[in-house]
Simulated scan of single mutants.
Amino acid sequence: MRIAFLVNAIETEKPSYTTTALALAALARGHDVRYITPGDFILSPDDALMIRTAQFGDARPKKPETLLRALTGPEQERTLINVEEVDVLFLRNDPALDADSRPWAAHAGANFGRLAAERGTIVVNDPCGLALAQDKLYFQDFPAIVRPTTLISKDIEEIRSFIDNHSDGVIIKPLQGSGGKNVFRVASSTESNLNQIIDAVGEVGYLIAQSYLPKASDGDTRMFLMNGRPLKRGTVYAAFRRVPARGDVRSNLHARGTPKRANVTKEMLAIAETLRPKLVEDGMFLVGLDIVGDKLLEINVFTPGGLQTIRELCDVDFCEEILDSLENKVSTKKTYNGVLNNRILSTY
């Protein structure tokens, strides 16, 4: 199959990224792998959707560093192809990274992905579903039983009142963001720097105030779901713990969190089952859940990462299961000759 990965920028991709691992695994299976960025779409006057792609040709890099050098080297030539020649378009760009500096790019994946799906390409995650998840308001669409108590506001007095009602304190973070950026724990509404925190976080939009979960001090668990169900091989789940650095409220690996092997509990599996109907309905093929105890802290539907970390901790490469599923979708689409739409295929 021909698979194209949409990323924010090829130059900023890293060997440790899940996208890199997926691309390597696809190349090892003999697939034609392409990379594109938000600026590589062209809608022609004849209504053909074209994409400018970076590709590997006959090369089959086996190491992450070699793969990324091949994509950015001086010999790399971009090829213009019709999106109808692509079997799978895998949207792996993070809109939050482009929201400030390149707002035009933030929604390009979902917008052009929808056009690609209309032309017969399998697009994951489903672009119409991703359009609903452009910020953390999407999180509020899931059942309240799995979510911490949450306030979304820009009103400082509302936020102060919310803090006063939570003796364990609250977490304040931006409505749109990722990687643990601008995430603060506030213990009391009388903290001297509360105004500065609200100003800093609120500068980019609405704020989320979320009840602090004491168990979060021990870290959270990132667990992958594929086609609405926990991704696993045998008894091993695609999951790992993220332990925050001393003195830091954030568990994100970008924020110096430490990865550990995870113990997937029945509470975590219950959360996954509670989320499954909506994830399937929205065509969310691959997502990452961040869980503390019996509560869901975050859901990453754009660029869930950590598969390389799981491979190092558990000696299991879940890229194989993901590619098995994608190959099955392509085969199913050919079998039914276009009868199944993208939303159905993305969770098949």
Rank of each mutant, 00 (worst) to 15 (best):
Ala9Tyr: 13
Thr12Phe: 11
Ser16Glu: 13
Thr18Ile: 03
Ala25Glu: 14
Pro38Asn: 01
Asp40Ser: 10
Phe41Met: 05
Ile42Val: 15
Ile42Ala: 11
Leu43Gly: 07
Pro45Asp: 10
Asp46Cys: 06
Leu49Tyr: 05
Thr53Gly: 04
Ala54Asp: 01
Gln55Asp: 15
Phe56Pro: 05
Asp58Thr: 15
Pro64Trp: 03
Leu68Glu: 02
Glu75Asn: 14
Gln76Gly: 11
Leu80Asn: 12
Ile81Asn: 00
Val83Asn: 07
Pro95Lys: 02
Pro95Asn: 07
Ala96Tyr: 09
Ala106His: 04
Gly109Asn: 00
Glu118Tyr: 05
Thr121Ile: 03
Ile122Asn: 06
Val123Thr: 09
Val124Ile: 15
Asp126Thr: 05
Tyr138Glu: 07
Phe139Pro: 01
Asp141Asn: 15
Arg147Gln: 15
Pro148Asp: 07
Thr150Asp: 09
Leu151Trp: 09
Glu157Ser: 13
Glu158Ile: 05
Arg160Phe: 03
Phe162Met: 01
Asp164Gly: 09
Ser167Asp: 10
Ser167Lys: 14
Asp168Glu: 13
Asn182Met: 12
Val183Asn: 02
Val183Tyr: 03
Phe184Met: 07
Arg185Leu: 07
Glu191Ser: 12
Glu191Asn: 10
Asn193Phe: 10
Asp199Arg: 14
Asp199Cys: 06
Asp199Tyr: 09
Val204Phe: 15
Ala209Leu: 02
Tyr212Gly: 01
Ala216Trp: 05
Ala216Pro: 01
Asn227Cys: 15
Asn227Gln: 13
Leu231Glu: 01
Arg233Tyr: 08
Thr235Asp: 15
Tyr237His: 15
Ala239Pro: 00
Arg242Glu: 02
Arg242Cys: 02
Arg246Asn: 13
Gly247Thr: 10
Thr258Cys: 05
Ala262Pro: 00
Asn263Pro: 04
Val264Cys: 11
Thr265Leu: 08
Lys266Ser: 11
Lys266Ile: 09
Ile271Val: 08
Thr274Ser: 13
Leu275Gln: 04
Lys278Gln: 14
Val280Ser: 02
Glu281Tyr: 12
Glu281His: 13
Phe285Met: 13
Val287Leu: 07
Gly288Leu: 03
Gly288Lys: 02
Lys295Thr: 06
Glu298Ser: 00
Ile299Arg: 03
Thr303Trp: 00
Leu323Val: 06
Ser325Lys: 08
Glu327Cys: 11
Asn328Cys: 08
Lys333Ala: 11
Gly338Val: 08
Arg343Val: 10
Arg343Leu: 14
Ile344Pro: 01
Ser346Phe: 05
Ser346Met: 10
Tyr348Pro: 00
Tyr348Leu: 12
